[in-house]
């Protein structure tokens, strides 16, 4: 008889808790999705060259199987390609992944410039790694010409020209890696991305892409 009471009370509490959570989940699901999309949209607005298309609808995922692969948001004005925003993930952050939106100016096969960058997501040490968001560090990636010979950006410790944040070399490296990956992604996959956007019928399945982006934002 005692066991029956355990069972009834435990089940009762579990059912009530589950109902509460189901309700809260339902109420919050919309705003959570919206705030994620808003973060992406704001990021594109902030870094890409001036555009008049809808980069999100032209979104191109380099590898639909890998949620951490770069995502290209091509930017066009009057039908001419002016550049792209590329969302890249570096696994080399100090605390988890560093997700950066990199704005690039120029066609994939032409002279490229890094216009600006913005951090989409990072869990780096507040006040230290998070300084990557501030002009002192991120400003180095503004109006920065990409070497045509394919040389990578590096922090000074690795023989490059980027000043790392004092005490946060790991974050600086991860951030720099994001920029390099973005440049490479636009160079190598930009043409494919534009083709896919122009001809949606032959494009990669959009669904896998959309799911993968969600995963990326969580990661």
């Amino acid at each position: 008889m005692k066991e029956a009471k355990y069972l009834i009370v435990l089940t009762g509490v579990a059912v009530v808790c589950a109902a509460l959570l189901a309700y809260v989940y339902k109420v919050t699901a919309g705003p959570i999705e919206m705030s994620k999309n808003a973060a992406i949209n704001e990021g594109i607005q902030a870094v890409a060259p001036e555009f008049d298309n809808d980069p999100v609808s032209m979104m191109y995922l380099i590898d639909g199987q890998d949620p951490l692969s770069p995502v290209i948001y091509p930017a066009t004005r009057g039908g001419v390609v002016v550049g792209a925003a590329v969302k890249t993930v570096s696994k080399k952050g100090y605390a988890g992944n560093v997700v950066v939106m990199v704005g690039l100016e120029g066609a994939p096969d032409g002279q490229l410039r890094v216009l600006s960058t913005t951090v989409v997501d990072m869990k780096e040490t507040p006040g230290l790694g998070t300084k990557a968001k501030e002009p002192g560090f991120a400003g180095q990636f503004q109006q920065l010409s990409v070497p045509p010979d394919g040389a990578l950006f590096k922090v000074k410790k690795d023989g490059g020209s980027i000043n790392a944040i004092a005490g946060a070399t790991i974050t600086s490296r991860a951030f720099t890696e994001c920029v390099n990956v973005a440049v490479k992604a636009w160079r190598e996959h930009g043409a494919a991305a534009l083709k896919a956007a122009a001809d949606p019928a032959n494009a990669e399945p959009v669904n896998s892409g959309a799911d993968a982006v969600k995963g990326g934002a969580n990661g």
Binding site: L20, L21, V24, Y25, V27, T28, G30, P31, I32, S35, K36, A39
Partner: peptide, 12 residues
């Protein structure tokens, strides 16, 4: 969980 979801929704 209620706190966690609410924060994610309204204070991302």
């Amino acid at each position: 969980t209620v706190v966690d979801l609410s924060m994610k929704a309204w204070m991302p």
